[in-house]
């Protein structure tokens, strides 16, 4: 029987070290690009040397990062089948986190799109959507659990072909000292849900390949991103596409920006965020 072990000489420590080091030249479809300037797919109009985060998240994968106030965060769905489940936290005080109810109630709008703030439960804007070419997003259904993934796919094993969104959020959160109690409802991008007149939730799916969403961080953020099928995705197969992530420095929403006074509610959210940031010396 031939095996993969036949391709590796690992019978001594020095041979094992040489074998390990020889692997570094490889690339993969799903990987972080470090430095970020080496990203193979820099967004149009962005200086690759300004990038602070560049990564392709695997189907079923997750990523997480603390980003500075003002950072632009762009998510790309190259195949039209990604689903980016996102939770945001104030990186300085993680008990302040995304509040999906306030995020739709305060702006009087259930559907996310350009100009929509992502609000915390503390009356502040954590982020604002600054660009959106998809228009298919969801603030109602959260992400999958081991219970729902097992019902749909037969398994939610973390090492298996159909991990749940919550289990991925748990892993991402754990790497920042957070646990299950720190996982509020998430929002998801690139797979839409529509609320019918009778309250029915209709999965509208993807807007097609090549769409993107861009956010700006109004505060220093801990960002958790999970790329798993939407809970209402009707397929019994687990067919989520890769997700691209890029980030680069910028400015938060400030007085003088049209967005700053777009609505009275969002204006007060920005005033609260700025008030917090100034007191912290940010």
């Amino acid at each position: 029987m031939t095996s993969i072990a036949d391709d590796h000489q690992t019978d001594s420590v020095l041979a094992a070290r040489a074998d390990a080091r020889a692997q570094a030249v490889r690339t993969a479809d799903y990987m972080p690009y470090r430095p970020a300037s080496t990203s193979p797919v820099v967004p149009d109009g962005v200086d690759r040397n300004s990038l602070v985060w560049a990564e392709t998240v695997a189907p079923g994968g997750y990523t997480h990062r603390v980003i500075a106030r003002g950072t632009r965060l762009r998510l790309d769905d190259p195949t039209g089948s990604a689903c980016a489940h996102v939770i945001l936290y104030n990186a300085l005080e993680t008990n302040e986190r995304l509040n999906v109810a306030d995020t739709i109630k305060i702006p009087w709008q259930a559907y996310l799109g350009t100009g929509h703030p992502l609000l915390s439960g503390d009356g502040r804007a954590l982020a604002t959507i600054t660009a959106d070419t998809s228009g298919r997003h969801d603030t109602f259904c959260g992400t999958s659990t081991d219970e729902s993934a097992t019902a749909r796919y037969g398994s939610a094993a973390p090492e298996g072909p159909s991990p749940s969104g919550r289990s991925r959020f748990l892993l991402a959160a754990a790497k920042h000292g957070l646990s299950g109690r720190d996982l509020p409802p998430s929002v998801s991008f690139f797979q839409g849900v529509h609320v019918e007149a009778d309250g029915g939730l209709t999965f509208t799916g993807s807007a097609g390949e090549g769409t993107h969403v861009e956010l700006v961080a109004e505060l220093p953020l801990l960002v958790l991103i999970v790329n798993v099928p939407h809970p209402l995705d009707p397929s019994n197969d687990y067919l989520v596409g890769p997700l691209r992530v890029h980030a680069w420095p910028g400015a938060p929403t400030l007085p003088g920006d049209p967005q700053f006074t777009a609505t009275p509610e969002v204006n007060r959210a920005y005033l609260n965020s700025i008030d917090y940031a100034e007191a912290r010396g940010l």
């Binding site: 079923g60 090492e159 072909p161 687990y238 067919l239 989520v240």
Partner: peptide, 20 residues
């Protein structure tokens, strides 16, 4: 198209894009 593999879980067979 994203690469897929086939997995048997109990009596189910699913296609997945997860790089297991």
């Amino acid at each position: 198209m994203t690469a897929t593999t086939t997995h048997t879980i109990g009596d189910r067979v699913i296609e997945t894009t997860v790089p297991v």
